[in-house]
Amino acid sequence: MTLIVLYLGLGVFAGLLGGMLGVGGGIVVVPALIWIFKQEGVQPDVLTHLAIGTSLAVIIFTSLSAIRAQQKRGAIDWAVVRLLVPSTLIGGLVSGYLAGFIPAEMLKMIFSIFLLAVSLQLLTKWQPASHWTLPGPKALWGVGLGIGSLSAMMGIGGGTISVPFLHACNVDMKRAIAISSTLGFPIALFGAAGFVLSGWHHTALPAWSFGYVDLPALLAVGATSMIVAPLGVRLAHHLPVARLKRVFGMLLLVVALQMLFSS
């Protein structure tokens, strides 16, 4: 019962933050699941993989909700999405599968460094200068491959990578967020599939695991985050989002340092 309450609480937290700040997703879910799974006695050699694979599976459902909301507003540039989707899903599948064979401590360190970079970006409010234009189809294929590969390895939907890139290419911020939200679905779907395949026969996984995806966590966190995310969007219009981002950045900084220096 306590475990389900933790999962539901995490879903609420992730949904609110995702809706209010445009972050959340794996940035929130992965470190929280690592802590929860550790308390539950999950073996260290599968702990980080299980958290990342489950996070990607959660994003499958939350990204569908985001796509629906963005489509209602007519904000999705489907021409750009169509150019990026094939390579992002390939990158997500290959990276998700290969990440399953990276040693647990190394994968945890990679995620911690990424989390540290995100926290510093939030604290400094850094954004790349908008002095480029979107590259051609071949170059976008390479960009999509990179976004999909890194996002799947980190267990995120890719917004912290794709939005700054699109902004640097003079894409309007609202349009960039809509494109990023749409790309989150193929990244999460194929990335999670990669983690399922790579963890399929691992004997150290807990019961009710589907490869490196924990089904109870997926159902509880995914359902609540989908329900709560629209509330987060509404709160964003009434709360000091810039201040909340700084507070959240400080929280991520503490979590990143703790993960880096803990055993």
Rank of each mutant, 00 (worst) to 15 (best):
Q121D: 11
A66H: 12
L6R: 11
A236Q: 05
M250E: 10
R73A: 15
A193E: 01
K138H: 06
A229W: 04
T88V: 12
M109Q: 13
F13P: 01
H201I: 09
S63H: 02
P186C: 14
A229G: 03
R175Y: 05
A178P: 02
L183E: 10
G22S: 13
G41N: 08
S225E: 12
V247G: 15
G74I: 08
A223W: 02
A75E: 13
I156S: 06
M173R: 15
S87R: 04
M1P: 10
S151W: 02
G18V: 02
A99F: 05
P216G: 04
I60N: 01
G100L: 12
F165P: 00
L33P: 01
L98P: 09
W35I: 12
H131R: 12
I161R: 09
F165N: 03
F190R: 01
V213W: 04
V94W: 03
V23I: 15
L107S: 05
F248K: 00
W208S: 04
T54Y: 00
I113N: 14
I177Y: 06
K138M: 13
M154L: 14
L93W: 07
W78K: 13
L17Y: 09
E40T: 09
Q70R: 09
P216N: 12
L120A: 09
W126I: 14
L189A: 10
I227R: 09
A176S: 11
